[in-house]
């Protein structure tokens, strides 16, 4: 087929834009800087920062509840989660600077008729994590800009990047027994740092629900078997592609595996993009039906 070589010729003639080498260079610089930072941070652990943030939250909570009229006004429109708890937006802000725009909605859980403070630890953790993510994302964007400018980028070119950082939440289910919601952070210019955390609360105790609570002591075996079966079913039906074990695919869950609880009360295990499947599969989910 001589025409294949014509097609190849046309492919080879796809013009290379001037920006390419700058984009490549800044991606490398960015990753390399970040790699060094992570190293450094791992050495000196970062507990201090989180503790400071948590301490700040304690003050914020009291202030927020007592003084913010917007806070009180918006209470009426909040999604009510069953009779005993609700999720509300504890803090929300948007900011646009020359370099980036950021929008943050931080949720908190309120146990109605409970003053025991069961939800407080959870709320503090959510708050600290949201703020930390937002700060890190801003820092990443700033580092990226630095690398971009250092490799000959101009302010106009930078402005065209439209950097957007978003932190928000989504309620997954609300039942008599459980409240399950996801808190997400994304940066539009690089998907590698997108993060989703799930919070599952047992409404009778205010404590976090574990897979063990839902599936029993044998939860690892139950979940592993179910996931393996579902992977096989989806692969053979041609619905999805997964990595094999040798390629870094699914090797079994751990107690830290992420999940949320669906309306049926079943845990739904979620894997990160690329964790067990090609990126085009997004974040694969597996509902585990109790035996």
């Amino acid at each position: 087929m001589t025409q294949i070589s014509d097609a190849k010729k046309r492919y080879d003639e796809i013009p290379i834009p001037e920006e390419l080498s700058g984009v490549v260079r800044s991606a490398i610089d960015y990753s390399t800087v970040r790699k060094k930072k992570i190293r450094k941070r791992q050495k000196s652990r970062m507990g201090k920062k989180v503790l400071a943030a948590a301490a700040a939250v304690a003050v914020m909570f009291t202030l927020g509840l007592n003084t913010s009229t917007a806070f009180a006004e918006s209470m009426g429109e909040l999604p009510v989660i069953g009779p005993v708890a609700r999720v509300l937006t504890f803090r929300s802000y948007e900011k646009t600077t020359e370099d980036l725009s950021i929008s943050v909605d931080i949720p908190s859980v309120e146990m109605i008729g409970e003053d025991s403070g069961l939800a407080d630890d959870l709320n503090e953790e959510i708050y600290a994590r949201c703020e930390e993510y937002a700060q890190e994302a801003v820092q990443r964007a700033e580092e990226y800009k630095e690398a971009f400018m250092a490799t000959g980028g101009t302010e106009e070119e930078w402005a065209a990047h439209n950097i957007e950082i978003k932190v928000w939440y989504e309620i997954k289910s609300q039942t008599e027994h459980y409240l399950s919601f996801a808190v997400m952070g994304t940066e539009n210019w690089v998907s590698a740092y997108n993060e989703t955390r799930y919070y599952n609360v047992d409404l009778s105790t205010g404590k976090t629900v574990t897979l063990q609570d839902l599936l029993g002591d044998d939860y690892i075996r139950i979940a592993d078997e179910s996931i393996r079966k579902q992977i096989q079913e989806r692969s053979s039906a041609g619905e999805a592609v997964f990595f094999t074990e040798e390629e870094g695919g699914f090797t079994g869950i751990t107690e830290d595996t992420k999940f949320y609880i669906n309306e049926a009360g079943n845990p739904v295990i979620v894997f990160d993009q690329y964790e067990i499947a090609p990126g085009s599969e997004g974040m694969p989910e597996f509902e585990i039906v109790k035996e």
Binding site: Y11, I14, P17, E19, L20, V23, V24, S26, A27, I28, Y30, S31, T32, R34, K35, W189, V190, S191, A192, Y274
Partner: peptide, 23 residues
């Protein structure tokens, strides 16, 4: 480029792929 047929998306893809690869 051969997949997305436009410059901006192609540049984004290359950039993301490099970040992910290095990570």
């Amino acid at each position: 480029y051969s997949y997305v047929q436009n410059k901006d998306d192609a540049l984004d893809i290359v950039q993301n792929a490099i970040c992910k690869a290095l990570e």
